[in-house]
């Protein structure tokens, strides 16, 4: 129960932070990305503020042996840049620049009832699902030592 409560509180604070910061208004986002036009630099301070707080708190949190309600802290294994990371990020950026919504603000803004979110969010979920299908297929078809050594039925 407790991890569910903490996850809810985290989501709640995240959404309020997005709203207060200006991230849930796509006009602000597009103004921020319009660096060659009348550039609205304000949203740079959202990322700055978030990184400042999280980068300061992370080392304190990691002094603990484990999280409060979980067995271990996240283990992040990937360290190299790969084409998938860069291609995915590039496509994400194009979509972000077209609509002015990234995933957090889009999901939060559903609560406003604005109709554009009821078009954008379902499309986003379909896109996420497609990416997961593509990646599952790729990892299933990638040869592994044990599979390549034995003939396929």
């Amino acid at each position: 129960m407790r991890p569910n409560i903490s996850a809810f509180i985290s989501g709640l604070i995240f959404a309020i932070g997005l709203g207060i910061s200006g991230m849930t208004d796509p006009a602000n986002v597009l103004g921020f990305l319009d660096i060659t036009g009348d550039w609205d630099f304000r949203l740079a301070f959202v990322m700055g503020g978030a990184i400042a707080v999280h980068a300061a708190l992370r080392p304190l949190i990691h002094k603990r042996a484990r999280p409060l309600f979980a067995a271990q802290f996240p283990v992040i294994t990937a360290s190299k840049l790969d084409p998938k990371l860069l291609a995915g990020s590039a496509l994400f950026g194009v979509g972000w620049g077209l609509g002015g919504y990234c995933p957090g603000p889009a999901l939060t803004s559903l609560a406003s009832g604005a109709q554009q979110l009821f078009v954008f969010v379902p499309a986003m979920l379909v896109g996420m699902y497609l990416a997961q299908v593509v990646q599952a297929r790729r990892s299933a078809s990638a040869p592994t030592p044990s599979l390549s050594a034995t003939p396929q039925p």
């Binding site: 991890p3 996850a7 910061s21 503020g49 400042a52 992370r58 995933p103 999901l107």
Partner: peptide, 29 residues
């Protein structure tokens, strides 16, 4: 910039709560 900074700080706080309590990275996607 006060609202962007304040909102950003809340986002950083939220990510820190999720890491401390749940041991998870607050990546929405």
């Amino acid at each position: 910039i006060i609202f962007p900074l304040l909102g950003g700080a809340l986002i950083g706080l939220s990510a820190s709560i999720l890491l401390l309590a749940n041991g998870r990275v607050a990546g929405i996607s």
